[in-house]
Design a protein around this nucleic acid. Structure first.
Length: 486
RNA sequence: CGCGGGGUAGAGCAGGAGUAGCUCGUCAGGCUCAUAACCUGAAGGUCGUAGGUGCAAUUCCUACCCCCGCAACCA
């Protein structure tokens, strides 16, 4: 019996529509979940939305809306990604405004408090009256607020609760000393460096009077939790924690735990969150996978440059599977990568239209013409075909086991090329005219290869995979799967 | 001396001590089962710069140059 797996994405903050970077995270996660599920693993798959905090509070005020209604709107956009990106059916979606999450966050607080890791202190910071907010030092422009360069910043103090992260320096270093807790490996070293350079305690609450949109601090009416403390707790509240039995025990305590996040999240996910878990006496996360960022035209995406890629629009024009394919094949799993429509179209035409789509068409045309349904019946159960070069499958497996989506797909596509070559070299369409049986055997082999491809691309392109399998089983050439785009 | 990633054919990338590889693009052939697709071949690179260690370096070491992130309360 395989251990159950748990995998969560980060929860996006709902101050904007889903962007392509989150689509990447979601699709990577979904690919792993589907891959594991195919191997018979019981997987708990989590995502959701982070809905508290000052920025949302202000945004709602600007929009002249009730905060809850404001976040409801955005939450729905993220929830609908399940259909728009064709994510696994078992995906759990948690909102940090869900009542049971609120309870969990407060319980997390109490545990950390009880363990002596939360204490009240004076928070000193530079406060901009124009923004009515603290400005962090790295944001300063010539010592002034970037939004209000003519105004002087005032030093302001307020009482906040602090999480004593510094107490966990040693334990965090022990945690980070385990290979695999942070992927890629060089980011683990980065995290170790960061912890070794010293950890600061963090403010984890805000004065309610100034900003009420947050989870109330237990036993203190004057303060609400600062978002990150609240939001991080979702990873276990989604498992019904603080109920220690059931899903929490099954997946978090006894299972194999995975988180996915963007590269900017290392200190939140691998350091603060792990510190919180340690404080609360809960097992730490076993593997956290960090993807890179997506640029467009070599620059950060921004509305003013006009290089923003809307993943939903791409999916609508080219198909969900095409988007999923591009994100997994042409975006590096862990490094930054570039995404432009030009590159996307190039990959679409080369890999999907001319590659996979065309191969399906030529093989299934041969099959439909020269084979019968009876002849292909046994195909799904006989995947160990002689036509499959053994290394294709083993490369595919080992790549996915290392979260190297791009390599897994490269290996499948090299096989597609092999089949194209084989058709040209052995010319079954010719052989069939002089020796029907020999030709049929060749075509049968090709169909088997096609089925194998369908199997392997399942986690990446679920719909395409199904269409190919159906075509094989019904011995029918399907309509163009990926029409060329000019 | 802050930390990390990277600089390889026109473009995008892989590789990693011992005839430099892939995709797209270009050029020339071939095939006709296929989505004007597919197959074969060719042109195109002194692998950022300068040193060093090797019988041998693009691959290791050192220095430097350039690009990109990060440098914590941004969710």
């Amino acid at each position: 019996m395989k251990k159950p797996f748990y995998l969560t994405t980060t929860l996006p903050y709902v101050n904007a529509s889903p962007h392509v970077g989150f689509a990447l995270e979601m699709v990577q996660a979904d690919c792993l979940v589907r891959y594991w599920a195919l191997q018979g693993v019981d997987v708990f798959f989590n995502t959701g939305t982070d809905e508290h905090g000052q920025k949302l509070f202000e945004a709602a005020q600007k929009a002249d809306m009730e905060v809850q209604k404001y976040v409801d709107q955005y939450a729905e956009q993220f929830r609908s990604l399940k259909e728009k990106l064709n994510l696994s059916a078992n995906l759990h979606f948690i909102r940090t405004t869900d009542p049971h999450h609120v309870v969990a966050a407060q319980e997390m607080w109490k545990r950390c408090l009880k363990n002596g890791d939360i204490e009240k202190r004076v928070y000193k910071g530079l406060y901009c009256v124009g923004d009515e907010a603290f400005i962090k030092e790295s944001e300063l422009v010539d010592g002034k607020c970037p939004n209000h360069p003519t105004m002087d910043l005032i030093e302001l103090e307020e009482e906040n609760y602090f999480f004593l992260l510094s107490k966990y320096q040693k334990k965090l270093l022990e945690y980070l000393s385990q290979p695999g807790v942070v992927v890629p490996e060089w980011r683990r070293k980065e995290a170790i460096n960061f912890v070794e350079s010293g950890l600061e305690d963090f403010s984890i609450s805000r004065v309610k009077e100034k900003m009420s949109w947050g989870i109330p601090v237990p036993d203190d009416d004057m303060q609400v939790m600062y978002v990150w403390f609240d939001a991080l707790t979702n990873y276990i509240s989604t498992l019904d924690w603080p109920n220690e039995e059931g899903n929490f025990k099954k997946y978090w305590v006894d299972g194999v735990t995975y988180q996915m996040a963007g590269k900017d999240q290392v200190r939140f996910q691998s350091i603060m969150w792990q510190g919180m878990l340690m404080s609360a006496g809960i097992p730490t996360t076993q593997h956290i996978l960090y993807h890179g960022f997506i640029t467009s035209g070599g620059q950060k995406m921004s509305k003013s440059i006009g290089n923003v890629i809307d993943p939903i629009a791409v999916a609508e024009e080219y198909g969900i599977d095409a988007l999923r394919f591009f994100l997994l094949r042409h975006i590096h799993p862990t490094e930054d990568s570039d995404f432009t429509i030009e590159r996307f179209k190039e990959a679409y035409n080369a890999d999907l239209a001319n590659g996979l789509g065309n191969l399906v068409a030529r093989v299934m045309q041969l099959a439909q013409t020269h084979l019968t349904v009876d002849l292909v019946k046994e195909i799904p159960s006989t995947l160990q075909s002689s036509i499959l070069r053994a290394t294709v499958y083993t490369d595919y497996i080992s790549s996915l086991n290392n979260y190297e989506f791009d390599r897994a797909l490269i290996s499948i596509w090299s096989y597609i090329q092999e089949l194209d070559q084989k058709i040209t070299e052995t010319a079954p369409f010719k052989v069939v005219k002089t020796d029907l049986e020999a030709g049929q055997r060749m075509i049968h082999d090709l169909v088997q290869g096609l089925y194998m491809i369908a199997d392997m691309i399942g986690p990446v392109m679920p719909t395409t995979s199904e269409l190919i399998k159906q075509a094989v089983v019904s011995n029918t050439k399907p309509i163009n799967m990926f029409a060329r785009k000019e």
